[in-house]
Structure formats: structure tokens, C-alpha cells
Simulated scan of single mutants.
Amino acid sequence: MDAPQIRLLRFADLKAAQVVTSWPQLKRLVEKHGFPAGYMLSPAVRVWDANAVEDWLESRRRAAAQAHSEAVGA
């Protein structure tokens, strides 16, 4: 049985996907909005698990949809 493949993202991948635009923005997302902190792959390389990033994005989509439906229904 094959082990599940872990997809790792680097900062450039997050930026290319328009998840973040800068390191300071990324730091704010981690500190204030629960974005995954990632981990150091080596002393100079931080990576993020793609599934954790996708889960965070989906949670933001759900929260926005819920806030919209509550505003419309109110």
C-alpha cells in the first residue's frame, strides 16, 4: 500500500496562488487569522503542507458564506 503523498508549498507557491503577497502579510495571517505556520524544512526553507493550506482557505470560504447569508437574512 502506498503512503499518502505530502505536497509541500514554499512561499513562492503561496504567492503564485495569490494566497499571500508578502512575508509581513503572511505573518499577520498566521498570528491573527489561524493560517498554518508551516515548518522549517532546513535552516533557510519554510514549507507548508498543501492540505493544511487548502483546509484553511476552505474554512475562510465557509465563514465568508455564512457571514453573507446572515447579513442577507438579517
Results as ranks from 00 to 15, higher is better:
residue 47 V to Y: 03
residue 66 Q to H: 07
residue 55 D to A: 15
residue 33 H to C: 08
residue 61 R to I: 15
residue 36 P to M: 06
residue 71 A to K: 12
residue 65 A to M: 13
residue 21 T to M: 06
residue 4 P to T: 08
residue 36 P to Q: 08
residue 56 W to G: 00
residue 14 L to E: 00
residue 43 P to I: 12
residue 25 Q to H: 14
residue 72 V to G: 01
residue 68 H to Y: 12
residue 53 V to R: 03
residue 12 A to R: 14
residue 5 Q to E: 11
residue 35 F to A: 02
residue 34 G to P: 03
residue 14 L to M: 08
residue 45 V to W: 12
residue 35 F to N: 00
residue 10 R to I: 14
residue 72 V to Y: 02
residue 72 V to F: 04
residue 73 G to S: 15
residue 39 Y to H: 09
residue 19 V to N: 01
residue 27 K to L: 06
residue 65 A to T: 07
residue 38 G to L: 00
residue 33 H to Y: 15
residue 50 A to H: 04
residue 58 E to S: 15
residue 34 G to F: 08
residue 53 V to S: 04
residue 29 L to F: 13
residue 29 L to P: 00
residue 4 P to W: 09
residue 15 K to E: 12
residue 35 F to P: 00
residue 72 V to D: 02
residue 74 A to W: 04
residue 64 A to K: 08
residue 22 S to F: 01
residue 9 L to F: 01
residue 73 G to D: 14
residue 71 A to G: 04
residue 28 R to M: 05
residue 18 Q to S: 10
residue 7 R to W: 07
residue 20 V to T: 07
residue 10 R to L: 11
residue 54 E to T: 12
residue 55 D to F: 13
residue 43 P to R: 04
residue 37 A to T: 09
residue 44 A to E: 12
residue 48 W to H: 06
residue 72 V to L: 06
residue 32 K to N: 11
residue 63 A to T: 13
residue 13 D to E: 05
residue 19 V to R: 02
residue 62 R to M: 13
residue 56 W to V: 03
residue 27 K to E: 03
residue 73 G to M: 13
residue 43 P to Q: 05
residue 16 A to H: 04
residue 28 R to T: 07
residue 18 Q to R: 13
residue 50 A to E: 06
residue 3 A to V: 14
residue 53 V to A: 03
residue 55 D to T: 15
residue 33 H to F: 15
residue 9 L to E: 00
residue 72 V to P: 00
residue 62 R to Q: 15
residue 49 D to W: 02
residue 7 R to Y: 09
residue 9 L to N: 00
residue 30 V to W: 08
residue 43 P to H: 03
residue 37 A to C: 05
residue 54 E to D: 13
residue 47 V to H: 03
residue 65 A to Q: 13
residue 23 W to A: 13
residue 29 L to T: 05
residue 10 R to D: 09
residue 50 A to P: 01
residue 57 L to S: 06
residue 9 L to D: 00
residue 44 A to L: 11
residue 58 E to P: 01
residue 13 D to N: 02
residue 71 A to M: 10
residue 34 G to I: 15
residue 37 A to M: 05
residue 45 V to C: 14
residue 25 Q to W: 08
residue 6 I to S: 09
residue 16 A to W: 10
residue 8 L to K: 02
residue 30 V to H: 08
residue 11 F to G: 04
residue 73 G to C: 11
residue 44 A to Y: 11
residue 8 L to E: 02
residue 48 W to K: 01
residue 27 K to R: 12
residue 37 A to D: 07
residue 20 V to S: 02
residue 3 A to F: 15
residue 9 L to K: 00
residue 23 W to I: 14
residue 8 L to V: 03
residue 55 D to C: 14
residue 61 R to N: 11
residue 27 K to N: 06
residue 25 Q to S: 11
residue 49 D to T: 04
residue 68 H to V: 08
residue 56 W to E: 01
residue 45 V to Q: 14
residue 9 L to V: 01
residue 2 D to A: 11
residue 7 R to N: 10
residue 4 P to C: 06
residue 52 A to T: 02
residue 43 P to Y: 03
residue 67 A to Y: 01
residue 51 N to M: 10
residue 56 W to F: 05
residue 45 V to S: 15
residue 17 A to P: 10
residue 38 G to S: 03
residue 62 R to K: 14
residue 5 Q to M: 11
residue 33 H to T: 06
residue 28 R to A: 09
residue 22 S to G: 02
residue 63 A to L: 12
residue 1 M to P: 06
residue 21 T to W: 07
residue 9 L to P: 00
residue 52 A to F: 03
residue 66 Q to I: 10
